[in-house]
Simulated assay, not measured.
Amino acid sequence: MAIQSLPLYSPNLAVLEELHERIYGKTQQQQEAIARYRRYLATFNPYLSEIDSIQFIFNKEGNALAHLVVAIHPEHKDIGIIGFFEAEDKTSAAALLKHACSHLQRKGCRKIRGPIDLSTWHSYRYISGIQKTKSMLDPLHLPWYAGTWANQGFREVAWFVSAVRTDFSYIIPFTKQGHDTALEAGFGIRQFDRKHATRELRILHGISSKIFTDSWNHSPISLSSFYFIYEPYLSFLQEQYLLFLEDSRRNPVGFCFALPEKGNPKRLILKTLGVLSEYRKQGLAAALLHAIHVRAQEDGFAECYYPFILEGNAVTKFPYEGYTMVSSYVAYERFADNNILS
Rank of each mutant, 00 (worst) to 15 (best):
P139C: 14
K176L: 11
G206N: 13
L204T: 06
F154H: 02
D299F: 11
Y306Q: 07
S225C: 09
P115L: 05
E61Y: 02
E261A: 15
A291H: 07
Y329K: 08
S235M: 03
S53F: 02
A14V: 13
Y305N: 02
L6H: 10
V253G: 01
F160P: 00
L142I: 15
F226W: 06
I127K: 06
Q240L: 11
H67A: 09
F174H: 15
G129S: 12
N313E: 15
E246K: 03
R280K: 10
C109Y: 07
L276M: 08
P46F: 09
E261Q: 15
E303F: 12
Q131W: 09
T181L: 13
A42D: 14
K262E: 14
G283E: 00
E156N: 01
I23H: 02
S222C: 10
L137Q: 06
I72R: 06
R194W: 01
E261W: 11
V330F: 08
L288R: 01
F255H: 04
I309T: 08
Q240Y: 11
Q55F: 08
A331N: 04
N59V: 13
E17C: 04
T120I: 13
S327E: 12
A35L: 11
R249C: 05
A185P: 01
H179M: 05
I269K: 00
K132R: 12
Y124V: 10
G83M: 07
E156V: 11
N264W: 04
C101H: 02
A14F: 09
W149Y: 14
Q177W: 04
I207C: 04
K195Q: 13
H73M: 10
S92P: 04
E21V: 15
G108H: 07
H67P: 03
I54D: 07
E278K: 08
Q240I: 12
I130V: 14
Q31L: 12
K195A: 13
F236M: 00
G114K: 01
T316Y: 02
I221Q: 10
G147C: 01
E17S: 09
A285R: 00
P265N: 05
S135C: 15
Q131I: 14
A287I: 10
I292Q: 05
H99D: 05
I189S: 09
F244C: 05
V275S: 01
I79Y: 03
A71I: 10
T133I: 15
I309Y: 02
I203Q: 05
G83N: 06
L16E: 09
N338Q: 13
S135D: 06
H67Y: 14
T324K: 11
E184P: 01
H76S: 15
D167G: 03
T272G: 00
L284C: 07
E246A: 09
N63P: 00
R249D: 13
N338I: 06
T324R: 10
K271Y: 14
R250L: 14
N12C: 07
I127H: 05
Y9W: 06
A35S: 15
A163K: 05
H179G: 05
I207G: 04
L270R: 00
L140W: 07
F301W: 11
A314E: 14
Q31P: 00
H67W: 12
D117V: 10
V164N: 02
G312T: 09
H99R: 10
I81G: 01
I221W: 03
S327W: 06
E298F: 09
Y126F: 15
I3P: 01
E75W: 04
H67M: 08
L6N: 08
I82C: 08
L142Y: 10
H290P: 06
Y305H: 11
Q29R: 15
T213Q: 15
W121R: 04
I211H: 05
G80Q: 06
H205N: 14
